[in-house]
């Protein structure tokens, strides 16, 4: 009874949750990410390169509205670098003493400014499509980072007979294949400061690594803590197994 229950439940609950999404997806290529596995951590160099790509390509249309500049400490920037990085952006502030809004250079305590003042403006500038905020996009799409890379790499000429609407682009991995975002990544879109070869795939993977960090800024802390908590709980369970056994050993079975 017991054993049958446990195995069944474990197998099926896990299977169920996973299968729910597997059903209708287009197969996307899977990559190895440095943060995968029990001891994997966010690849800071890749995330820094990803930030470079984000700044050069993505931020003209996509916001990062939950990310403060100071958060970038988590991918290895120091205070001065963050200050300089933030100062490249203009932030709307105010009202001042005359009641006027004004622009000032961003500070580490500011968030990445949105490229558009509101959704209507964003749609107007993008042929009716709304470029989503990218802060948590890595968790907000089935397939996660692999999907983000696949989407960047998936621009193709549409197959014969495929009717592409005006202002849309064909993408092999986008649901329905008609995407409003044109292909933005090509080889050598940016020159990496660390000398990594700037291929299109490299750009896509780096920006994905960066977006993983923006989606889970406490990722490394969480897993580091997880290892300790799990070990502690295993020891605790072991101790209580001993206690339980010592107690019940003397219970006359019958």
């Amino acid at each position: 009874m017991m054993r049958a229950f446990t195995t069944l439940a474990a197998a099926v609950t896990i299977g169920l949750a996973g299968s729910a999404w597997a059903a209708e997806q287009i197969e996307i290529p899977e990559y190895r990410w440095s943060h995968e596995g029990v001891y994997g951590t966010i690849d800071r160099a890749a995330a820094q390169r990803g930030l470079q790509v984000f700044q050069a390509v993505c931020q003209s249309c996509h916001g990062l509205k939950y990310v403060y500049f100071r958060t970038l400490k988590g991918i290895g920037y120091d205070d001065d670098q963050i200050k300089a990085l933030a100062a490249e952006y203009e932030i709307e502030d105010g009202p001042d003493e005359w009641g006027e809004m004004f622009y000032r250079p961003a500070r580490p305590t500011d968030i990445f400014p949105d490229p558009f003042p509101n959704e209507a403006a964003a749609r107007a500038a993008n042929g009716g499509a709304y470029p989503p905020d990218l802060s948590v996009i890595a968790k907000g799409r089935p397939g996660g980072l692999d999907y983000i890379v696949a989407l960047q790499m998936g621009y193709e000429i549409e197959p014969d007979g495929f009717e592409l609407a005006d202002g849309k682009y064909y993408n092999a991995y986008f649901p329905g294949h008609q995407i409003s975002m044109p292909q933005m990544l090509f080889d050598e879109v940016v020159e990496y400061q660390d000398g990594t070869e700037p291929t299109m795939l490299q750009h896509a993977k780096d920006v994905a690594a960066f977006l993983w960090f923006t989606a889970e800024p406490h990722y490394d802390t969480r897993k580091e803590m997880g290892v300790r908590v799990v070990i502690f709980l295993v020891v605790l369970a072991g101790l209580f197994f001993g206690v339980k056994r010592a107690l019940w050993r003397n219970v006359k079975k019958h």
Binding site: F232, L233, V235, L236, L239, F240, G242, V243, A246, R249, N250, V251, K252
Partner: peptide, 26 residues
Amino acid sequence: TVDESDDGDSRREFLYLAAGAATAVG
């Protein structure tokens, strides 16, 4: 139902203590 005759008492005591302390820390 409980047979008290056999046991390594000190080992048991240690186990109880360790389990109690670990629970408190947790």
